[in-house]
């Protein structure tokens, strides 16, 4: 399904709607260029799940972990593989350990180089920045 949002607020509102379909155990891939709204979308999901600290870009830290108070979701992993160059660097992050924790929802930005390493995604989001500040957000649900 494809959506067009006209502001960060609209992107976050769409993300909040999407958050209601999550139960824990999902792996969500986010495809899209720099500035296409990936982190804004993840921020929208985290806020909708009641996370109140600021959601910052994980480009530098690679993995951000947000503790969630929710009946079935215990944590969100916000992963950004932008800086990684090969699989050996990924394995050193011990992500598998975190992904396997019950009640984890993982959002993975820039997954393309590492598609084989992760479980089959539950959802693939493709974000595109359009001229005039609009964003196209395509939600491909594989669940």
């Amino acid at each position: 399904m494809s959506h067009t949002t006209h502001s960060d607020e609209e992107t976050k509102a769409l993300a909040a709607e999407f958050a209601r379909t999550l139960h824990g155990g999902e792996v969500v891939f986010l495809e899209g260029d720099l500035g296409s709204g990936k982190t804004t979308f993840v921020r929208g999901v985290a806020e909708a799940l009641g996370f109140s600290d600021p959601v910052r870009s994980p480009s530098f830290t690679i993995v951000n972990r947000y503790v969630i108070q929710h009946p079935t979701i215990k944590q969100m992993l916000h992963v950004d593989l932008y800086r990684l160059k090969d699989v050996s660097e990924l394995s050193a992050l011990a992500l598998e350990e975190e992904l396997e924790r019950p009640g984890t929802v993982a959002f993975i930005e820039w997954p393309s180089l590492f598609r084989d390493v992760f479980p089959t995604p539950s959802v693939v989001l493709t974000l595109t920045a359009l001229p005039a500040g609009e964003h196209k957000i395509e939600i491909q649900d594989l669940r």
């Binding site: 500035g35 910052r56 870009s57 480009s59």
Partner: peptide, 12 residues
Amino acid sequence: TRDDAAGEAFDK
């Protein structure tokens, strides 16, 4: 910062 760090903006 509420989102990206300044150095990250330079890199991107």
